[in-house]
Computed example of a mutant assay.
Amino acid sequence: MPTEFLNTTVTLEKFPGKGGWTYAPLTGFDRVSQTHFGMQKVSGWLDEVELPTATLMPMGQGRLFLPINAALRKQLGKQAGDAVHLRLFAADDAAAAAVSLLDFEECLADTPAALRTFRALAPAQQQSWVAWVAAAADEQQVLRVEKACVLLAQGATERPPRG
């Protein structure tokens, strides 16, 4: 049985700029475990909506956030500035915390042009983008995903160089 590690109400926020994600900031709790790239797989509830699986992402300085995509916001009827009740459980399978193409596509979902460009890429190019994001330090991964959204929405096919 999964272990509950968070039961609280938070206010949804949005990263600034075009394509900025809406998210639930998570502070004031101990991380479930040290995981690959600082991401953590969880399940739980957001208000009355079940989250069968979700990925907490690093925000820097030991903080995490839960991305809230457009479909989930519509289901909740909420936007940035609205309060939501979170009840999260640690995922049973520690291996599920590894970053995947599906995780990256979920991040791109709020920028349809970026997602279309990404899905049109060859598998090796897709893996290159995911590896570029994953290679960054925890606090830089979010910035790389935001940059990827902008570049892919503009039609870029090659990821930026490492560094």
Rank of each mutant, 00 (worst) to 15 (best):
A136N: 05
A91I: 07
Q79Y: 12
T22F: 03
K41E: 08
G163E: 13
V42M: 02
A156F: 11
E105L: 07
L88K: 02
V130H: 02
L121F: 12
T55H: 01
D103E: 09
L115T: 03
R31E: 11
Q127D: 09
L88H: 02
L86N: 01
F65M: 12
T35V: 13
A109C: 12
G60K: 07
T117V: 09
D30Q: 11
H36Q: 11
T9Y: 13
T117Q: 07
L72H: 03
K14E: 09
V142K: 02
A91T: 09
A91D: 12
P112T: 09
A95F: 15
A153L: 10
F104H: 05
A120V: 09
P123H: 10
A156W: 10
Q141C: 06
A124V: 14
F15Q: 00
R162H: 15
Q125V: 03
R63P: 03
E146P: 01
F37A: 08
A122Y: 13
H85F: 12
G44E: 03
L51R: 06
E139R: 11
Q75F: 06
V142E: 02
E13Q: 15
G62Q: 13
P2T: 09
F37Q: 08
L152C: 05
R144D: 03
G81S: 05
M57C: 09
S100R: 07
A153E: 07
D82F: 13
V42E: 00
P112C: 08
A54L: 06
E139T: 13
L66T: 03
G163R: 14
Q140Y: 12
A156D: 05
Y23L: 04
A97K: 00
W21E: 03
N69V: 13
Q40E: 13
A131K: 13
E50N: 11
L6Q: 01
E50Q: 14
E48S: 10
V150F: 04
H85I: 10
E50V: 14
Q61E: 15
A122Q: 15
R162V: 15
L64Y: 08
A95C: 14
A90G: 08
M39N: 05
L66A: 03
A148Y: 04
D30Y: 08
W132T: 03
R73F: 04
R87A: 04
P161I: 08
R63G: 01
A120Y: 08
D110H: 05
A131V: 14
R73I: 05
A113D: 12
Q61K: 15
G38W: 02
E48W: 11
G38R: 01
W132C: 00
T55Q: 01
A148C: 10
F89D: 00
A120P: 03
W21G: 00
L26M: 08
W45Q: 04
T22D: 02
Q141R: 14
T27R: 12
E106G: 06
L143G: 02
M1D: 10
V49F: 04
A24R: 02
W132M: 02
G17C: 07
G20L: 07
V150T: 08
E105W: 06
A131E: 15
C107G: 12
A83I: 10
A124M: 10
A114N: 05
E158S: 12
P2M: 07
E50H: 11
R159G: 00
A96S: 13
F65T: 04
P160D: 04
T9C: 11
G62D: 14
D30S: 11
Q34N: 14
